[in-house]
Structures are given as C-alpha cells and as structure tokens.
Design a protein around this nucleic acid. Structure first.
Lengths: 117, 117
DNA sequence: TAGTTGTTATAGATGAACTATAACACTTCG
DNA sequence: CGAAGTGTTATAGTTCATCTATAACAACTA
C-alpha cells in the first residue's frame, strides 16, 4: 500500500490522502476485507497529524468505501469489489474523453453531475 | 442560464460556480459559441464578489471549456460539443455505479484517476 | 467616444485546514 | 486479566486559502 501526498498541492491534505486510498481500491490493490494501515502509522509515514489522516478515513467511511471501528481499524468494505468492476468502464470513458480533448477534471465533473441527477 | 450556489456548502464558492457552469454545458443548455453572462452580472445576481466569479471562469478557461477575452466576455469553446457527446456514456456509467451502491463522489474519483493515468 | 468586458493590483476579514496534546472507549492478543 | 493497539472526542493554537472591497487598466463593441 503506497500513499502519496504533495505538500505543494493546493488540494487539502486529507483530500489527497482519501484520493490516494480510492485509487488503491479502484486499482484492486486494496481488496474488500483488507485493513488500511492505522491512522497513526500513516500520520507518521507522511509526517502529518493524526487528525488529518482520520478526516480522510472518515470521508471514505461516509462514502461507504471503508468501515471503521475502535480497536479494529479501517477495513475496506464489500463495495470495493463493485468499484473494481466499474474500473474498466471508467477507463474506457476516460480514453474517449481524452481523444475528444476533454480534461479529466471536466470529465469528473460531468460524471458527478450525472450521478447526482 | 441558471447558476446556483449554496452558501452553506463547504465547497468553495468558485468551485460551485464553475461546477454549475459545467453542468449547464454538459446538459447542452450552454452550446459551443454561446456567451456566458458577464462576471459582474453573475457576481451581482449571486451576491458574490467579482473576483470569486472570475476565479471560477478562469478555472473553466484552464480546462479549455471556455475562451475569455477582454471586452468580449467568456464564450463556450468548441470542446463543449465533445462534452455533450460524452454525456450519454457518463449517464450510463453513473446508473451502473448507482445500482452497485457506489457513491457519486467515489465514482468521480475513480474516473478522475482513470483520466490521469 | 462611451460603455462593457476581463485583467491586474492592493489590502483586509474570516474560517477551514492543520497541528499539538491529551484523555477516552473498544478490540485484540498474550 | 492486563497490555498494546485501534478509532473517537476534546481543547487550543497557528497558518493560509478563501472571500471581500476598491480601484485602476486594457481590449473589444456599438
């Protein structure tokens, strides 16, 4: 499990961490049932405060991507398998968008809008 | 053209405005060549500062979604037609994600990751 | 020329983000 | 049981992006 952050980025640290985890899950490197590294470990590894990592984890919990409990840690939910299923379709859509000159940010916004209708 | 913002939302105002415009474009209600309302008009209508609107417009310009020039205003670029083409595919993907219990935010993150690979 | 547009500059106020520390509640394991 | 590890909650302080306000400037249109 490799989590990366860019301190220079304007994006919030906890958003970067959450995004990094989503990426691992979507890639299948974090299958359902797998435990995420403890927030304290991640905080130390990334040289970041514990709360910042926990805020990222809670964001993922609110999305239903992980389940959290005291003493047990954060575990990837069964929904992760569904995500992996969608990956190929998402890649195809991204490829088509690229060939049309549409940016990733614009495409993501389009998808989000479609999902919320 | 209807732009809406939620002052209570935690999302930045300029992100909400940019997202609102993307939505209009994706829905085809803002076709290529169409002019966006002037930043000053939007600022007054939404009771927001001029700079906040301009920051949203510049974000859209950086994405290539609009073209801006002094005196002329912001015009939807030809790329908007490509966006409309992608709309059906995005809707299909969103529907599939919903049936799998995957949130819009998670799906958008997945797509963004796919687009940036 | 007059009016409208985006652009740039400066400066201040506010609040989210991030940090630091500590204690607490629950689970697992020896 | 006790110890160690987990997420949770609380408090408090610092930093910095966001948002505002005002003003002037440059390019385009009518």
């Amino acid at each position: 499990m490799l989590l990366r952050i860019d301190p220079e980025s304007s994006a919030a640290l906890y958003d970067q961490i959450a995004g990094s985890v989503r990426r691992e899950v979507a890639a299948g490197r974090l299958p359902a049932g797998e435990r995420l590294p403890s927030a304290r470990d991640v905080a130390e590894a990334l040289d970041v405060n514990l709360h910042t990592v926990l805020k990222a984890y809670q964001q993922l919990r609110d999305e239903g991507l992980v389940e959290m409990r005291r003493g047990r840690g954060a575990v990837v939910s069964a929904r992760a398998d569904a995500l992996a299923e969608l990956r190929a379709d998402a890649a195809a859509l991204a490829a088509r968008a690229r060939s049309l000159g549409v940016s990733g940010e614009t495409l993501a916004a389009l998808v989000r809008a479609a999902a919320e209708d």
